[in-house]
C-alpha cells in the first residue's frame, strides 16, 4: 500500500468509485488484447480439432455400422452356404447309396452271368467230351465192325438169312448205342448216317480184303445187305 499514493476518499464522504477514470482506457486495451488473441489464435485451432474429432467419431460410427452390416451379411452367407452344403452332402450320400445299389446289382448280374457262362461252358465241355467219346467209339466201331465181319465171314458165309440177321442185329445195336436219350435229334441221325456210311465203308474194306482170304461169295453178299436196309 505504501508503494502507491492512496487516493483520498472524496471529500465529505462522497466516494466516487462508481465514476470511471482513465483506467477505463487501459482496461479496454487489455480486454481488447485478450479478445483479439483468443479470437485469432485460440478459438480456431480448438474448433478445428473439435470438428475433426467429431468427423472422426462420425466416420467411426459409420464404419462400425458398416462392419456390423457386413458381419450380418457374412453370417447370412455362412448359414446359406452351410445349408447348401448340407443339401449337397445329402445329395452326395443319396447318390452314393444309389451307386452302391447299382454296383451291387451289377455285381450280382455279373455273377449271374458268370454262373450262366460257367454252366454253359460246362455243358459245352460235356458236349465236347461226349462228342470225343462218340468219335472214339466210332474209331473203335470200325475195328468192331471188322471183327464182326471177320466173325460172320468166318462162321458161315453160305447162310444168307443168318448172315442178314446178324448184320441187322449189329446195326440195331449200333443204332441203339449211338442214340442216347438226352442228345439232340439231329445229332444221332447224323451220327447214324455217318456210322451207316462208316459201316458201309468198313464193310467194304473186308470186301477188298476178301480176295486175300479167298472168299468171293462174301464180297457179293454185302451190297445185298445194304440194299435191304
Amino acid at each position: 500500500m505504501s508503494l502507491y499514493s492512496v487516493a483520498a476518499p472524496g471529500g465529505g464522504g462522497g466516494n466516487l468509485f462508481l465514476i470511471p477514470n482513465a483506467t477505463f482506457f487501459v482496461e479496454l486495451l487489455i480486454f481488447l488484447i485478450v479478445v483479439g488473441v483468443i479470437w485469432r489464435y485460440v478459438v480456431p485451432p480448438v474448433k478445428r480439432a473439435t470438428a475433426q474429432r467429431q468427423e472422426m467419431v462420425r466416420r467411426q460410427i459409420q464404419e462400425s455400422q458398416q462392419a456390423t452390416k457386413r458381419l450380418a451379411e457374412a453370417e447370412a452367407r455362412y448359414s446359406a452356404a452351410l445349408a447348401e452344403a448340407r443339401v449337397e452332402a445329402a445329395k452326395i450320400r443319396e447318390s452314393a447309396r444309389a451307386d452302391a445299389q447299382e454296383i451291387k446289382d451289377e455285381l450280382r448280374e455279373q455273377a449271374e452271368h458268370e454262373v450262366a457262362r460257367i454252366r454253359e461252358r460246362g455243358a459245352e465241355q460235356l458236349a465236347t467230351q461226349r462228342e470225343q467219346v462218340v468219335r472214339q467209339l466210332r474209331g473203335e466201331l470200325g475195328k468192331l465192325a471188322v471183327t464182326l465181319a471177320g466173325r460172320i465171314v468166318g462162321e458161315s458165309v453160305a447162310d444168307d438169312a443168318r448172315r442178314a440177321g446178324t448184320v441187322d442185329r449189329f446195326l440195331d445195336e449200333l443204332q441203339g448205342m449211338a442214340a442216347p436219350p438226352s442228345a439232340p435229334e439231329s445229332v444221332p441221325q447224323d451220327n447214324v448216317a455217318a456210322q451207316d456210311r462208316a459201316v458201309s465203308q468198313d464193310s467194304a474194306a473186308p470186301e477188298a480184303g476178301a480176295p486175300k482170304n479167298g472168299t468171293v461169295k462174301g464180297a457179293a453178299s454185302v451190297p445185298h445187305a445194304r440194299r435191304r436196309r
Binding site: Y4, A7, P9, N15, F17, T23, E27, I30, I33
Partner: peptide, 30 residues
C-alpha cells in the same frame, strides 16, 4: 470501499492495482 492506489500519468488518473490485476488475469487467460 473503492479506494485504489493510483498512478498519475500525464494528468490522467489510473488505478494501479486494477491495471496490474487485469494484466495478471489477461496473462493467465492468454
Amino acid at each position: 470501499v473503492g479506494e485504489h492506489p493510483q498512478w498519475h500519468i500525464l494528468g490522467l488518473t489510473i488505478n494501479a492495482d486494477t491495471v496490474i490485476s487485469t494484466s495478471i488475469a489477461a496473462v493467465i487467460v492468454l
